[in-house]
Simulated assay, not measured.
Amino acid sequence: MSKFFYGIEDLFVNYLFAPLDFFRFMDSWWGSNTINWIFFVIGLIAAVYWMGQLKIFNDNGEEDKSISSHSYL
């Protein structure tokens, strides 16, 4: 079973996260955190899109707003 976990470790350390080693040795804080800012912007865009979609469904009245949404309530 330990070989299974060592295989997972090898996959992530040596292959999937290998490009991130480049950012580890940069001297600039902004350069090192560029990938974090990219993920933040992608997440922000996704959240704004999701909220817009929720507003569309809410305005159409398609949302079930009954008090007891589950039988055990």
Rank of each mutant, 00 (worst) to 15 (best):
K65E: 00
D27W: 12
G31N: 02
E62P: 00
E9Q: 14
M51K: 10
F25P: 01
G61V: 07
W37E: 08
I42W: 00
M51V: 09
Q53M: 07
I56Y: 15
S28C: 09
F5H: 13
G61L: 06
F22D: 04
S68M: 02
A18C: 05
L44Y: 08
R24H: 04
G43L: 01
L73Q: 01
G7S: 14
G43D: 02
R24V: 08
S68C: 07
Y15V: 09
D21E: 10
F17Q: 01
W50G: 00
G61N: 12
S32F: 07
P19V: 04
F22P: 00
T34G: 10
L20M: 11
E9H: 11
F39W: 12
K3V: 12
S69I: 15
V41G: 00
F39E: 11
F57S: 05
S32E: 09
L20K: 03
Y15D: 14
A46H: 09
Y72L: 05
I35C: 11
P19A: 01
S66Y: 03
F57H: 10
N36S: 13
S28N: 09
G7W: 09
S28W: 06
K55C: 06
D21H: 10
F4M: 10
A18G: 02
D10G: 09
E62W: 01
N36W: 12
A18K: 10
D59T: 14
H70N: 12
R24G: 04
P19W: 02
S32T: 13
G61P: 14
Y49L: 11
Y6W: 13
L44F: 03
G43N: 02
G7R: 15
S69V: 15
S28Y: 04
